[in-house]
């Protein structure tokens, strides 16, 4: 691509304006033969032609000769106050070593990423605690049901995501039980992985439906947003990823539904087993919603819709809803690509 001189000048200015810039030329074996720019900024003093570059920039030891046209070493921490992006570019006779000060950009990225990683660790910790609570055996009737004590004992806003593998029942009637369970197993592996990655907790799997709760584990996103992100990813799972099973036309499309509202969540014990339970008005509604779910579509209730202003244009009011479901419902149909 040939760029006009003015554009080249602009790009050069753009890349060097906020990053103190210096560069050197070295032989393919790494002997210095030229240098320009603000070398003092990088502590490069007393350079002589013929010096080994790694005597001055020790981290370049072993990098030369280049085996590719260029190589980048981003964010090399020289000191607390100096972080360098180093670019090595192969020229016809020499290798160019370009140095950019990336201290400010790296520190900014560090702050953002710290938050993301802290949150990810916290979510892992909470999920582990939750699974430990669920794994604990209790007397047949526990005198002390456990509200999610490791989290808090308050009512909280929770989004419930129902995922339905449509017509799995019809599929089961046309294949044998081993095949049906094999299919379900493969779908569930992908569905549960996606739910966990989006910060949800699987509540139960029954028949062709799986139900997950969002809002129990820490997240920077709202529970409806997490549930929506998970649902959109799950709807993209298609039959081609499910291996070694017979195809029955019109079966196994995935659809979903989301309801949101205040709920009491806790762990209840019965017959030496523990399970995660959530109690709230919208939970009953989720079961009604299941009948409206079609392949490749998502049905959400009004509270979910209201918390997702950016996604609202993607949804349309669902006219054909049972009268028992008083609040409006909204539907989204996924891309068929």
């Amino acid at each position: 691509m040939k760029l006009p001189a003015a554009v080249v000048d602009y790009l050069v200015q753009l890349s060097t304006a906020d990053h103190t810039f210096a560069y050197l030329s070295v032989t393919p074996e790494g002997q210095v033969h030229g240098w320009w720019g603000d070398l003092a900024h990088y502590g490069l003093a007393n350079l002589s032609v013929g010096d080994a570059i790694d005597d001055h920039l020790f981290y370049l030891a072993g990098m030369l000769p280049l085996t590719t046209a260029h190589e980048v070493l981003p964010s090399v921490h020289m000191t607390e106050q100096l972080i360098i992006d180093t670019h090595l570019v192969q020229g016809p006779q020499a290798v160019w070593v370009l140095l950019f000060d990336s201290t400010a950009a790296t520190q900014k990225q560090q702050r953002l990423q710290q938050k993301g990683n802290d949150l990810s660790l916290l979510r892992h910790q909470y999920n582990k605690l939750l699974q430990q609570c669920l794994a604990q055996s209790q007397p047949a009737v526990s005198p002390d049901p456990a509200p999610l004590e490791h989290f808090d004992n308050q009512q909280r806003d929770i989004s419930l995501l129902l995922i339905k593998i449509c017509d799995l029942t019809r599929y089961s009637q046309q294949t044998n039980p081993t095949v049906t369970l094999q299919v379900l197993n493969q779908y569930l592996a992908q569905i549960t992985q996606t739910i966990v990655e989006e910060g949800g907790v699987i509540n139960h799997v029954l028949g062709e439906t799986s139900v997950a709760l969002f809002g129990l584990l820490p997240s920077e996103q709202s529970p409806p947003q997490q549930a929506l992100d998970a649902a959109k990813r799950i709807l993209k799972i298609n039959g081609s990823e499910i291996k070694n099973v017979p195809d029955v036309p019109g079966c196994l499309g995935i659809g979903g539904g989301i309801t949101t509202g205040a709920a009491t969540a806790g762990i209840v014990h019965h017959q030496n087993r523990a399970s995660l339970n959530a109690i709230g008005a919208h939970i009953h509604q989720l079961n009604q919603l299941a009948g409206l779910i079609c392949p490749n579509s998502l049905v959400i209730d009004r509270p979910t819709y209201q918390i997702l202003p950016r996604s609202q244009p993607d949804f349309e009011v669902l006219e054909a809803r049972p009268r028992a479901l008083l609040p409006e419902l909204y539907a989204w149909v996924g891309s068929t690509n």
């Binding site: 981290y59 070493l73 964010s75 921490h77 990336s102 990225q109 990423q113 710290q114």
Partner: peptide, 8 residues
């Protein structure tokens, strides 16, 4: 403290 890039 998360690391960005590389510390040598």
């Amino acid at each position: 403290l998360t690391t960005i890039g590389v510390k040598i």
